[in-house]
Design a protein around this nucleic acid. Sequence first.
DNA 1: GTCTATAGGTTGATAGAC
DNA 2: GTCTATCAACCTATAGAC
Lengths: 200, 200
Amino acid sequence: MKKTRGRPPSGGREEILKATLDVLRERGIARLTTREVAERAGVSEGSIFYHFVDRPGLLKAVFENSLDGMKNLTSAAYASNDIRTTLNTFAKVIADFLDSGLDVLIAAQADAELRGVVVDFLVGNDYGPHRGIAGIGHYLAEQQAAGVIRSDIDPKIISYLIVSDAFQRAAQPKLFGQRKGVPGQDAFFTALMTLIAPVD
Amino acid sequence: MKKTRGRPPSGGREEILKATLDVLRERGIARLTTREVAERAGVSEGSIFYHFVDRPGLLKAVFENSLDGMKNLTSAAYASNDIRTTLNTFAKVIADFLDSGLDVLIAAQADAELRGVVVDFLVGNDYGPHRGIAGIGHYLAEQQAAGVIRSDIDPKIISYLIVSDAFQRAAQPKLFGQRKGVPGQDAFFTALMTLIAPVD
DNA sequence: GTCTATAGGTTGATAGAC
DNA sequence: GTCTATCAACCTATAGAC
């Protein structure tokens, strides 16, 4: 059996994908032309159409590439025995994904057809925030059973608060251009730990 | 003194703005052409350029129009004596804005230049989530002083949780196409009330 | 202020050689 | 698989009449 599955990397294809994402983030999807992508990737326009058929095909490939990072959202390893440290690790995994994943999700909204393609992909793979929420929720349920966090709250809600925080933290600077009003991550987690601590 | 300030409404201008927002939300900004806007508004393309100079000018006008709804985020009236009811009212004001405001903020990301225009507008008017957070935070601080909510938490954090929830609730269906994982608003507020209740 | 007609520029996509 | 050259379509913007 060969070591690499599928096409042998001649470089061109990957360079195109990378260049596309770069242009997407810098110029915005409305300014993304196959011409500029070709220049940045160091290939001709013809190559782009050879590999991806058409512009939507190129974008679809880039989108699915970035969005596949969402599969990691369920299975973040438990980092330590400390709750806060573990929750922080979960949050970091989500934040890492959102940094580039959000750009793609937002870009897709610029075109109704791309919107549909992305949604189909997400739904088809069952990708979405609920995966992160479920993963953290499972961990928190264990902690609750162990009596480490208060018992009068649905762990899913706590989990949702953590995911929402990560989402807000990632999305706000992108959409509003500033981070005003968002508490530091430390302040957030400190408050959260206080809120979910067992009540006497 | 005349009753109406500024230009007498001949209708055309407003129709164009409305049609533009409609096309923006339906087709996406990348598919928004002056041609289709003109058709929908029932005017000629020439009229669009007469009123808004160029395409970016048209979009800028639409953006600022929608984003100005953000000024209401600070001053939501206190609805009742009940905390939960009042917080729900705050949340509703934010949700109402986000429903259309988010579409505009997201659309602007499709073009680096528009991105800049919008950010300048937001920063220049000090618009952003922090306004909602500050408004609710002020109310919560009063409640805390009155002993109705626990005293060991910064009210700003609670306020941030509420705004984040509203944001997640509005953004997720737009970006992911589904609402999976988001708890119902009632469940969220019920949990929140439990979390912020005074501890013995 | 609004229209019609059209110019001018850009862009996605194809054809065919290598 | 990659390139060059080119086309056809589309869209923004302008000019000038009403």
